[in-house]
C-alpha cells in the first residue's frame, strides 16, 4: 500500500531554534496516526510544516506521491482541498455564524445546490452534537463547542485526510469519547486518513492505529501502540506510565 503522506528528513526552525530535526514518517490511507510528545516538542509545528502553513527549512513532504514543498499557491490549494484541519483553538471565522463557517468550503469548492449544502451543514453539526448552535456566532460558544464546530467545518467536504490538533483538549470525557467514536466512524465509513495530535491516553488507546512519538523536535518512534509499549524507549514508557492513573 502506498502512503498518502511521505515525510523525509523534515527540518523546521523558528529563527535559530531548530524545532524539528530530520523527521521521517509514512502515513498510510485509512489509518489514524497519533502524534505524541511533551508540550513544546514540535507536534503542532510538524502538522503546520506538513501543510506548509510554516515552511520547512529542509526535507521533503509528499502527498499521494507528489512533492508539495516546491508547489506554488494554486497547486498547493488543489492538494489542500482534499485535506481538512481542526486547529487547536478552533480558528472559526468570528464574523460569520457557525452555519456560514461550515458553508464556506462547500460553497467555494463544490457546485452543490443550496438545499444540499444546507442538509450537509445540518448533518455535520448534528454529528458533533451541536445542532443548537447552527445560527450562533463563535463568540457565543464555549471553548469545547467552538472546537466541535471547527471539526464540523474541517469535515464539511469529507476530506481524504483530516488533521486534528488536540481535538479532545477542553472537552469533558463523554464528549471526548463521542468525538473519538466520530473519528473512528469517519475512518471506517469514509476511509478517511486521520492525523491526530493529542495527549489524552484514553483517546490514544481508543483511536490510534500508529503513533509518532516526538521529543525535543526529534522523532523517537513510529509504529503501533503495542510496538511502542514493547520498544523499551524510556521516554515513551514514562509518558504512558505517568499518564496512567
Amino acid at each position: 500500500m502506498e502512503p498518502v503522506i511521505t515525510i523525509r528528513n523534515l527540518t523546521a526552525q523558528y529563527g535559530d531554534l531548530i524545532v524539528l530535526e530530520n523527521i521521517n514518517a509514512d502515513i498510510y490511507p485509512g489509518e489514524i496516526t497519533v502524534i505524541l510528545g511533551g508540550s513544546g516538542c514540535g507536534k503542532t509545528t510538524l502538522i503546520k510544516n506538513i501543510l506548509r502553513l510554516v515552511e520547512p527549512v529542509a526535507g521533503s513532504v509528499k502527498f499521494w506521491g507528489e512533492e508539495v514543498l516546491g508547489l506554488d499557491d494554486i497547486q498547493m490549494a488543489n492538494i489542500l482541498r482534499k485535506v481538512g484541519m481542526l486547529f487547536q483553538s478552533g480558528a472559526l471565522l468570528n464574523s460569520l455564524s457557525i452555519y456560514e463557517n461550515i458553508s464556506i468550503p462547500l460553497e467555494l469548492h463544490t457546485k452543490l445546490p443550496r438545499s444540499l449544502i444546507d442538509r450537509i451543514i445540518k448533518v455535520k453539526l448534528n454529528l458533533v452534537n451541536l445542532s443548537e448552535a447552527l445560527y450562533k456566532f463563535p463568540s457565543e460558544l464555549s471553548g469545547g463547542m467552538k472546537k466541535r464546530a471547527a471539526l464540523a467545518r474541517a469535515m464539511a467536504l469529507d476530506p481524504q485526510i483530516l488533521f486534528c490538533d488536540e481535538p479532545s483538549a477542553g472537552l469533558d470525557p463523554l464528549t471526548s469519547a463521542a468525538l473519538d467514536e466520530l473519528i473512528l466512524s469517519l475512518k471506517k465509513q469514509l476511509k478517511m486518513t486521520i492525523v491526530v495530535v493529542t495527549h489524552e491516553l484514553a483517546s490514544i488507546h481508543r483511536i490510534a492505529d500508529k503513533i509518532i512519538f516526538l521529543e525535543q523536535g526529534k522523532m523517537l518512534f513510529i509504529g503501533t501502540l503495542a510496538e511502542a509499549q514493547k520498544a523499551g524507549i524510556p521516554q515513551i514508557d514514562t509518558f504512558f506510565e505517568v499518564g496512567r492513573f
Binding site: V123, N126, S131, Y135, Q189
Partner: peptide, 19 residues
Amino acid sequence: EIQEVMETFSSLKVKVPAP
C-alpha cells in the same frame, strides 16, 4: 457499507432550532 454511510450522514432525522 453504503447503509452505514447513509445512517451516519442522513439529514432526515436531524432536528435544528428555528432561526
